[in-house]
Design a protein around this nucleic acid. Structure first.
Lengths: 221, 221, 221, 221
DNA sequence: CATGAATGAGACTTCATTCAT
DNA sequence: TATGAATGAAGTCTCATTCAT
């Protein structure tokens, strides 16, 4: 019997009223993220979100006062403390930096890119100008920490004599850009194209890492 | 001699009726591209577009039957034959391939990224799922030719012994991803941030090209 | 004494939510018929219809997707199975055919002409060219069965030696024309004139029937 | 140069500018009548009317200040003095009254029903409630004189011992109704049906006259 | 006089939000 | 708490009317 994911106490399988109630906001956020990412904020109807979450329109407004508040909650929840765990992992990473960077890119895909959370990236890209305060929040909570993490890895490589980097600030984007590109690709044109035209994520990540690591490698005098 | 009352001699300031007729569609397309890229299709009101183009709501519908048709025209017009010129330039390029690739990335920024046309990239990313047929058109007219162009440059480098590339198909994205990232950055989060947080495009392009060329360079046995 | 058709249990003035849901479409159709008949389809604003039905604009669209669909529903509902009852009545009519025809004309007025359903006649007359498919439906469901009914009555009279009719097909119109004229008169010029200028329906019907029956009567050799 | 402002007498066949100018209002009225009768006032666009008259939208407003004014002119022009001629003809009619009435019905069809002027009948029927003052005008100028004319014919028949009429006022409608019905039929459902379903006007008129005359005929004690 | 590009009031329709049940 | 019928502000689009050419 599978343990319930969210509600801690009484564990009974059939989703009774009480159980559901606990889960509602999460289901709504999940549905909202998927639809916002697919169609954009303005083009998504709250009724669709409610339907996808299996509740009625009115119920949605029980948990989120307005559609905009739902949007903000989607961003906030999709992000919440995602970096803490990741940061710690890299603080204590054993091994050489090239491998660390390759591992970083792989987990980026596995933990974010391949999950629904990747929709947030597209969402922020599309909507940041319509929600400046959310964009600022995202910048502070995701972009800045993310860049910091990458920068620390690159600095480690330089310090250990593994990397030789002329412009550290820009080199950060050499890691970020291919990963963002991969996530966005999944949510945009690729979604309209036949399978055959899709990028193969794993192969793509390895290839990008390979070129990148070659590009950053220390050149002996 | 009494000077003509209305149309003063000055070249074109108070545009004559006839001239306007010709210019209107272009002005509307320009306004529409800017606003669609900024706020998305659904969140942009046709009245805003008309106002930005300096005409009234009704006038817009004189040239474009519906808002969706305007969207399609925006994409089509922003693209029209942009690759022909570029392709030819590279067919006849003299010089080594690393320089060619660096030049390619520079002109990408100068001719597209730095211009309003870069909005199309964000627009297609945001709206492709809402306009699958436009996405297909964009794929056929922009993405595919663009990838072809890059691939031919990479193949030239390999053929001339300048590049050593394990996965050609993915290496194409090593060129594309940083450029797309730069263009999108300009139209999203960066637009909400203080100047200081912006990427410096020229420095960024040089840095990406440097790392990339190092990464592609032939390694002697 | 006619019992009230609509509000059944007169007591409950503030109609319950559920009851309304059931009644709404009917109320809207009634309001729409009245206004379409009065002003025509194009000149009637949906907001007026909604207001007359005691609801807001948006509510109308909860029940009818478009104004045109509302129009189609008005025609369809005003007609639905109106002939079945009438037909049966005449199948089993006892008595001589002149009386039968006179009764037919009287009930035509009482059951249709004097009711709001008479508006459909004006409506179809005014709008048939704007809604050809509705006109075809009306032809098939109302005009053809109506003519058939009249024709059968006339044939009965001929068969029983009561009538002598040179051109049966056209004689059908000798019955129809005065009745249609009466119904249309009520909805057009008469509506703009002082009471005094109106036709008195009952007297009119009797007079038309009298002249007509005299005109159809068998002339002994 | 003060050229003659209007085109004077000069009579040349090819419709020169001058000639056309004179004809414009008439062509516009003709086009307007046809379209108003077909689609109704509100559903007809002034641009269509102008196009059908072979002029531009702006030109129409040179002759008629508003669409409503055009409507009023259409009604007024289509009617202008149509009864004077007809009245005189019947004042001096030689022959028996049944033939007179039959002739009246025939000419009604030939001079009105079969011409575009028959559209006015449908138009007034459809629009009278939207233009009460036009309806009053029509009542005074057409309906009242028309009924008078018919009444005088019937009275002549009674006076000459040819007719025996119980309700003279209503008997007038026994003449009018079938003729109005025929004209309306042509402009409504019939216009949407295959040829085969149409009424044959000449046969129809003769048949109605025959039944009617039989119905009015004096019955010997 | 004639044109047709431009206007903007007004119509249809959508959809976030409310609230009686 | 959950529902979904009802609302009305707001958006797209139409078209009578104006006016510079």
């Amino acid at each position: 019997m599978p343990a319930p994911s969210r509600p801690p106490a009484s564990e009974d399988s059939p989703p009774r009223r009480g159980r559901r109630k606990q889960a509602r906001p999460g289901e709504l956020l999940e549905a909202a993220l998927a639809l916002f990412a697919e169609k954009g904020f303005a083009a998504t109807r709250v009724e669709e979100i409610a339907a996808r979450a299996g509740v009625s329109k009115g119920t949605l407004f029980l948990y989120f006062p307005t559609k905009e508040d739902l949007f903000r909650a989607v961003v906030r929840e999709s992000i919440a403390g995602r970096f803490d765990e990741w940061n710690q992992e890299f603080e204590t990473f054993q091994g050489d930096t090239p491998e660390m960077l390759r591992y970083c890119m792989r987990s980026w895909w596995e933990r974010l890119g391949a999950t629904p959370a990747s929709g947030i990236t597209k969402l922020m890209l599309s909507e940041s100008q319509n929600f400046p305060e959310v964009a600022a929040y995202y910048q502070a909570e995701v972009i800045a920490p993310g860049k910091d993490l990458i920068r620390r890895i690159l600095e480690r490589g330089v310090a250990r004599g593994e990397f030789q980097i002329a412009d550290l600030e820009c080199a950060v984007y050499s890691v970020i850009a291919p990963m963002i590109f991969l996530m966005l690709n999944k949510h945009s044109v690729a979604a309209c194209l036949p399978e055959s035209a899709h990028i193969e994520p794993l192969r793509y990540v390895e290839a990008q890492a390979t070129v990148l690591l070659q590009g950053l490698r220390r050149r002996d005098s």
